[in-house]
Amino acid sequence: MYEFEFVKPATVAEAVAALAEEDAQALGGGQTLIPTLKQRLAMPSKLVSLTGIPQLKEIGDNDGVLTIGGAVTHAAVAEAAADSYPALADLASHIGDPAVRNRGTIGGSLANNDPAACYPAAALGSGATIVTNRREITADEYFRGLFETALEEGEIITAVRFPVPEKANYQKFLQPASRFALVGVFVAKYAAGVRVAVTGASEEGVFRWREAEAALDASFAPDALDGHSVDAAGMIGDLHGTREYRAHLVKVMAKRAVAAA
């Protein structure tokens, strides 16, 4: 790691001020950023820890909307959402391993937007709202491709608001070496319609499988997806799985998610 200064502010305002400095970067749980720094793939002059800010650790459940602070760990989401949004709790409880879940945060995961990460599927599949220190961004607007988001320089995720669906489920096909998703599909059924979000599969990052959403709106059953498929072109092809394999897995995981929801 290159050298950097470390600060741990106690309020969002102090963190935002510290991040205004050139080459300052936010530090959530560090479960992505610290490995990146070790590889010298980033060279921040200052790391601004978000883990000492009480406001970012709040969790609230109001009128069918679950609000999770930006620095809430995966383990805390798994516990807090168990009754209010079980599919989200289940997703959080299968990220990485217990030690990763005790440090890694929802804000860090969504800011990083790894194409194989789990939370992007939950946020897009739930039509969540990403709340920052500056504005509110709908999930449909937020994800912009591999490791790309709508976040601007120095902007921090303060909370994520999840509308709680009638039913939902996340199916993760594990890539056993990385413990990320080889393909993951999040299906959520709302009064306004079904949402299907796919992670791990596309070269463009997390995406909505709209054809499946329309089919499931007509009939929320696994067979409703018979005859539908995603195009293998544009899927990720690597040594863990070909494009065709991933395209196939998207449908299999989507059917399993519908069956389990």
């Binding site: 741990k8 560090g30 490995p35 440090r103």
Partner: peptide, 14 residues
Amino acid sequence: KAVKSCTMLALEAE
């Protein structure tokens, strides 16, 4: 809580 000490900064444990 169990954490990987190689993936946490010493100053975070203040």
